[in-house]
Design a protein around this nucleic acid. Structure first.
Lengths: 195, 195
DNA sequence: TGTTGCTATTCAGAAAATTGAATATACAGC
DNA sequence: GCTGTATATTCAATTTTCTGAATAGCAACA
């Protein structure tokens, strides 16, 4: 029931095929929701059945045909109703945190490596978000964009994505520093043991 | 399969009953993982069957008896192996973001209200984290704690929780400012229309 | 003496998400 | 001509998670 709201929100920006949505909701790129293609196609079927969206077949010459979905009035009002309901609280849910909680009894070096990988991915996402931001702004200064657009949604969610990745980097750096200091001490300790 | 790792990581800090774990993994308080009690009790059964944890019945006089779980050697080595495996990438998954993506077609006032509620909860969580931090430090300065403890895991995950909530607040403030400015403009626009 | 809240666990069922494919077309580079 | 990548969708099966309970003893408060 949560996915459908995300689908409708995405369709506010214009019609899209299942494939388009799958790309937007891909874990590697997602800005405000994630899902797998399988989930999406199933949900799109249901939503069409319930009249929330409508499909239009686009025949393509050099590609397989595709079905392009758009919001119906019913979908639009369901989305409006959704924005009035209380949102479920979120919490971070990240295997990396479990690893860190267990780092004292685990392989600290392996954990360190995967944190560095995470940070690399965070940097890539930030770069991606920056490109999207520039596309949204279309050359205008931020202030002007916010004044003129009648479509702030994508900007606000993008901002959250950016903050989130920045936080990831900041945290990653601190964690690395702490783990490094401990690893250094442990090595020093071993050496003095050997003396 | 993810929950069990979180359970084992939590048991590193000492034995705990299903109820204890349920409290720690409660969405409202969670530091590094969430789950419902139902999920936990089922998983604990399985884990005991697989020899990852062992149970001990504690008879209590003024309370119902409880089963207290602790890590076995097998569990400990499973946890070690887990820290060596690559962690799944995370993404934010938050209904609030969907609402914001849809705010242009939704009820902006309702969205504003639920953001303020979120911020209030973020503040409460920060206060809670601060209390936990003080308990961990036990009066020592942070630097000393990090030097002496052989148990950094909880500190690192706590730090992430703190950063996450701080980010939530920062983002919330910016979103409110943007939505307010737009609401003000819309009202002004209506008034000039009426003239 | 009733009400609420906390400890402690369990049950049944439904919904959502993940895993691991398979199918088909076509372009681009080596 | 082959490989890889991108478009576009679908199937089957399983696992995980969520929802909404029920039970039961005791404490604290009004």
């Amino acid at each position: 029931m949560a996915l459908r709201n995300a689908v409708m929100a995405a369709l506010l920006e214009g019609e899209a095929s299942g494939y388009d949505l799958a790309k937007r909701f891909d874990t590697a790129t997602a800005e405000f929701w994630t899902s797998t293609p399988q989930q999406l196609y199933r949900e799109l079927e249901r939503m069409e059945g319930e009249g929330l969206i409508r499909a239009r077949v686009v025949e393509q010459e050099r590609r397989p045909n595709k079905r392009v979905f758009s919001l119906t009035d019913q979908g639009r009002s369901a989305l409006h109703a959704f924005t009035r309901r209380p949102a479920k609280p979120t919490a971070i849910r990240d295997e990396m945190l479990v690893k860190l909680q267990a780092v004292d009894a685990g392989d600290a070096e392996a954990v360190r490596t995967s944190i560095m990988e995470r940070m690399e991915r965070a940097r890539a996402k930030l770069a991606r978000y920056e490109r999207i931001r520039e596309r949204l702004l279309g050359g205008r200064p931020e202030e002007e964009y916010l004044r003129e657009t009648d479509h702030v949604g994508p900007y606000l969610t993008l901002l959250r994505g950016r903050y989130f990745e920045e936080e990831n980097l900041r945290w990653g750096e601190e964690v690395l520093a702490i783990l490094d200091a401990r690893a250094a001490r442990r090595t020093a300790g071993q050496e003095s043991d050997r003396r």
